[in-house]
Each structure stands twice: as structure tokens, then as C-alpha cells.
């Protein structure tokens, strides 16, 4: 079962995200701040497959810090950043640093929860393919070594 961490400082946002993701059958963990999120990632026995984090939790760079923590724990963890509508500068910065994508929380006329589920599935797909690629590479190197 896929493991997803949701980091957001707003109770309602966290609750609604968790509810929607659980409906898809994901194993969801929630964290209410940047610090909680970072320690949740450190303490997890097995790294999270996907981390969904709010960009701004008091600090406008909270999302960047979570991304760094996630990639530091496991390079295959995919991070999706949630941003306020029209404020994508930091999100683009996250993309440059390797985030999977960003989702604007308040896109007019869009059911952003469905969009997010789509992104999560794409992220999981990329994670799977990355992991497979690496495994194939490892296998290939092993065979080359034998040969």
C-alpha cells in the first residue's frame, strides 16, 4: 500500500486531503507543521512514497525545507507542493530542486482534489519507473561485474 505524508498547518485542509487520499486507499500520515513533517519523515521506518506539502506554513519556504528533508531521507520520494493561487514563484523553485509538481489550492473552476489524485498517481508512476530503472541499472552492473 502506498504511503503518503500530508504536511499542512491548517486543520481543515489536512483533514480534507487525508479523507480524499484515504478514499483512494492510500496509507495517509498527517503533520501539522514543517517541524512535525520533518520528524515524521525521519522517524518513518520505510520512507514515504509521496509527500504533499503546503508551500507556506508561517515560513514562505516551508515547502522547500520539506522537499529537502524528503529527498534527504529517500531520493525516490516524490514531493507535490501546494501553493496559494497565483503565488507560484516558490513552487517553481521547488520544481528546480526536484519536486514532482505543484498544485494551486484554489484554481478557479477546477476540482483540485481530483487534480491532486491524478498528480499523486503520476508521481507514484514516476517513482515506480525510477525505482525500476535503478534496479535494472544495478542488475546490469552486477551482470557486467560477473561477466
Amino acid at each position: 500500500m502506498c504511503r503518503i505524508l500530508v504536511v499542512d498547518d491548517e486543520d481543515e485542509v489536512r483533514a480534507s486531503l487525508a479523507r480524499r487520499l484515504e478514499r483512494e486507499g492510500f496509507n495517509v500520515t498527517v503533520a501539522a507543521s514543517e517541524d512535525e513533517g520533518l520528524s515524521a519523515m525521519k522517524e518513518a521506518v520505510k520512507p514515504f512514497d509521496v509527500v504533499i506539502t503546503d508551500m507556506n506554513m508561517g515560513d514562505p519556504n516551508s515547502g522547500v525545507h520539506i522537499l529537502e528533508g524528503a529527498v534527504g531521507r529517500d531520493v525516490f520520494t516524490e514531493v507535490i507542493v501546494l501553493t496559494a493561487y497565483g503565488n507560484v514563484a516558490n513552487a517553481v523553485e521547488c520544481m528546480k530542486r526536484g519536486a514532482f509538481d505543484y498544485v494551486e489550492k484554489n484554481l478557479p473552476g477546477v476540482d483540485v482534489f481530483e487534480l491532486l489524485i491524478l498528480k499523486v498517481e503520476q508521481a507514484l508512476e514516476r517513482r515506480r519507473s525510477s525505482v525500476q530503472t535503478v534496479r535494472r541499472l544495478e542488475k546490469f552492473q552486477k551482470e557486467m561485474g560477473k561477466g
Partner: peptide, 24 residues
Amino acid sequence: SAMSSHMIGNRVFAIKGDLNELEH
């Protein structure tokens, strides 16, 4: 404006989540 897009945005996001669940 930064504050309001954050605070109002989050409230609306949560309400949209409830609507999504209701539709479900």
C-alpha cells in the same frame, strides 16, 4: 493580499474538499 489568499484560499480549499466528498 498574501495573507488573505493564504487564509481565504485555505478555507475555500477545505469547503471544496467537503463538496468533493459530498459528490462522492
